[in-house]
Design a protein around this nucleic acid. Structure first.
Lengths: 224, 224
DNA sequence: ACAATGCTTCGGCTAGCATCGAACTATGAA
DNA sequence: TTCATAGTTCGATGCTAGCCGAAGCATTGT
């Protein structure tokens, strides 16, 4: 029975954490639920079996998201009933705004700006996307060479792809990984458009005023 | 947690039995759930504590009914999800055929006829569906104005969408909610095509002979 | 190659809870 | 009153399922 799945407190916590629409890793969900990773793994297997969540593998991470809007709808309504019965749940607030905006994911740009960049590149036909696959177009090569002094040779690597879609945890969209994603981040740093936060262990990326302007000129959001 | 209450099979059976809107006695619910009266009593106390059901004492009987339409809605949607996951409930036999055929879901039409209507509207291109989203087409606006005297202005609402997919519990498909779903049901009632069952608390919708004919003319099933 | 990280599987422990038998209260009928 | 029926409370039992420690894969990074 599906309701039994939602009934367990640990699983309920996971589902409410996923209500934001973001995809979360198994360990993050374990923390949200306050259980060890082993336990969380078991819960997630059950949720998946019940069709409530869907996994997406990404490297050695496993991102989970709600399977479909109906599930979110039911979980919300259930939470509503629970609230009315006096059983209010603590609301998870927005954690760190600057972390959502721009951060390092491995070696490339993630967060809202990372997502915006990939969106813009797609719109400008610098890359072509088909499902998870991304390829650099001829236009894209010219664009990179002209504006950022990035040549195709710099992107060659025996084992790593040039372009790769990487799931973003703050926005629930993809951003650009691969050697191109890394090269772009490296160039932004060299040009002093952006720098990783000084705090050790922090993944936040701070853009300078000028950097933000230049970035927007190249990869600004869609204008409606 | 409220979901845990619905999670237990015995309690879930009781709640689905109550979905008809009728009030049932404790012993009847015990039979529905397939447990002894003692066990049922304990379950009912819990459901009452969680605000899901409300008792009404009458002589030496205790009638239980669902506490309010929101509860019915959540239980239905939960059952819908369960059905989709293949974990179809054993007990969900055609207990009440007329309930499966046509009933009120908040303020719009649900059940087989509700699903059929949305299907037909999609097929006739009166609405366009993209995933969960439904939009009224120009054809649809003309159709509504011509056959049902429903104008787009009547559907405007600051916060409520015109069209919305709502998961149906008996059929495991979607039917039409939103201001359009409500307006259609209202018009059916005004035209005396259909009327809510007289039994207090019942959610059954009865179509008249003529009403059924008119409905079929507009939203009849696909002919193969 | 090796180590580190993310996640899963396995085994055993434990707590919670659904279940029922038996006894108790309350309403209604003779 | 006495009996019958509806429903509850109590106590004992047994099963399920959540939980964690330890160990096993898989992927990535040095």
């Amino acid at each position: 029975m599906v309701a039994a799945l939602v009934g367990d407190p640990a699983r309920a916590n996971m589902l409410t954490a996923l209500l934001s629409g973001r995809a979360l890793t198994a360990t993050e969900l374990a923390q949200e639920a306050g259980v060890t990773p082993q336990t969380a793994s078991s819960h997630l297997a059950k949720l998946e079996g019940g069709g409530l969540v869907e996994p997406e593998k990404q490297g050695r991470h496993r991102y989970y998201r709600l399977a479909d809007p109906d599930v979110a709808d039911v979980v919300e309504k259930l939470a509503g009933l629970a609230a009315r019965a006096g059983h209010m749940r603590v609301r998870t607030g927005p954690k760190e705004p600057e972390l959502r905006r721009a951060r390092i994911c491995y070696d490339h740009l993630a967060g809202d700006l990372g997502v915006q960049m990939l969106d813009s590149m797609t719109r400008q036909k610098l890359v072509r996307r088909r499902k998870q696959e991304i390829v650099l177009t001829e236009d894209g090569k010219h664009f990179l060479a002209q504006h950022l002094r990035i040549s195709p040779e710099m992107l060659a690597h025996p084992r790593r792809p040039v372009c790769k879609a990487c799931l973003d945890w703050s926005a629930r969209r993809h951003h650009l990984a691969g050697t191109l994603g890394a090269a772009l981040m490296k160039r932004f740093t060299e040009l002093k458009w952006a720098a990783r936060d000084a705090t050790p262990g922090s993944r936040v990326v701070n853009f300078s005023r000028a950097g933000e302007r230049h970035f927007a000129a190249l990869f600004g959001p869609a204008e409606d």
